[in-house]
Design a protein around this nucleic acid. Structure first.
Lengths: 189, 189
DNA sequence: TAGCCCATGTAATTGGTTACATGATTGA
DNA sequence: TCAATCATGTAACCAATTACATGGGCTA
């Protein structure tokens, strides 16, 4: 089964209050960037579909000097559909991870090349960890007393665990690769 | 830039020795299932493309009582293209993680529902950890002395770190959800 | 005898990104 | 004055899965 998760992601944002397609993109970029993303090419057609299926209603908000905002609100039917999806058990999904794939073919390049690749990969993820940290601080300040905050912090914590684990793996892997490097140098001499 | 990584994944398998499309699928399923997968719908057209571009050569192996095997071998040009990709730095990729997405909308369902979901998610990943363990033992026995072994173990270690981190997150998250549950019960009484 | 393994491939469909089109306002 | 932000949407394209088509041999 290949369900359209984007549809539920959008419906989920609507469940927290009426927003525009533009706003939805912003939420994913600014709060949930750590585990989700959506492009406009998905969001706008989905919003159209949701209102056609009676899962959301559209109203237009006029602004001066700026384009009109198309605001969508979730309907009772929409909320029901969302809840049904939320309690459905998640399925196992095999992601595609480029870093281990490249290392799987590591014999094709030099140990030095492999080391550079892992070092670069480590940098990417330590940057991500920092980003999560700043989102966390911002939310803790902005959302005091908001009942959503506790759930949002849990999703940020997911990113913290995932990225720290990768840093740990990088360090172990770099140590192993450097050990191999020393060994081959010894054998050469 | 939206590069075709499947092409390099297939080329990478060919770099380790001549194989058929069927074999390639098996390698991903039995050794690399932890970080990669390919469907026949991708593999066969890619192999066709590779031989058209001079990156692989095809030969046919006849078998009795079984269908012919179409064996592909990598060419020098193919090996060069693969190496170029292997040393290119990996890009940051925002995956889509359904579990934190659902938790992001956690307010829409009961704490109990959230707990069930996380418990189920935990089971999935502890199963995955076990799978990785058995692949590791099998490889250690089968591939003694093979220079690829060390690299393959590093990719398995990636899965170990990633999955252990998720288990840790699940435990923390379950504790937090249960604490919230107790608190709401107290408030009700 | 039902179902899985062997083995190759194509066609249909869905999922997702990127480019394009439009245009005013604001800040560096 | 250049770039960014605000704001909505479509069209073209690429990536990937699933279903379909074929068919013999093996095993529970």
């Amino acid at each position: 089964m290949r369900e359209n998760k984007s549809k539920y992601a959008v419906l989920g944002i609507l469940s927290m209050g009426p927003v525009s397609g533009y706003d939805i993109k912003k939420v994913f970029e600014n709060i949930a960037s750590n585990f989700w993303k959506e492009s406009y090419g998905q969001i706008y057609p989905i919003l159209k579909g949701l209102s056609e299926q009676g899962l959301a209603n559209r109203s237009i908000e006029k602004q001066m000097g700026k384009p009109d905002r198309h605001i969508y609100s979730i309907t009772d039917k929409g909320r029901k559909v969302l809840k049904k999806w939320l309690i459905e058990p998640v399925e196992r999904q095999i992601g595609r991870h480029e870093m281990p794939l490249k290392l799987f073919f590591g014999l094709q390049v030099s140990l030095e090349d492999n080391i550079h690749q892992v070092e670069h990969f480590r940098d990417l993820h330590s940057g991500e960890l920092e980003d999560i940290g700043s989102i966390e601080e911002r939310l803790k300040a902005e959302k005091v007393g908001d009942p959503k905050l506790e759930f949002w912090l849990m999703t940020l914590n997911y990113g913290k665990h995932a990225n720290s684990a990768i840093l740990g793996w990088c360090d172990e892997t770099l140590a192993r690769l450097r050990k191999m490097e020393k060994k081959t140098k010894k054998e050469e001499s």
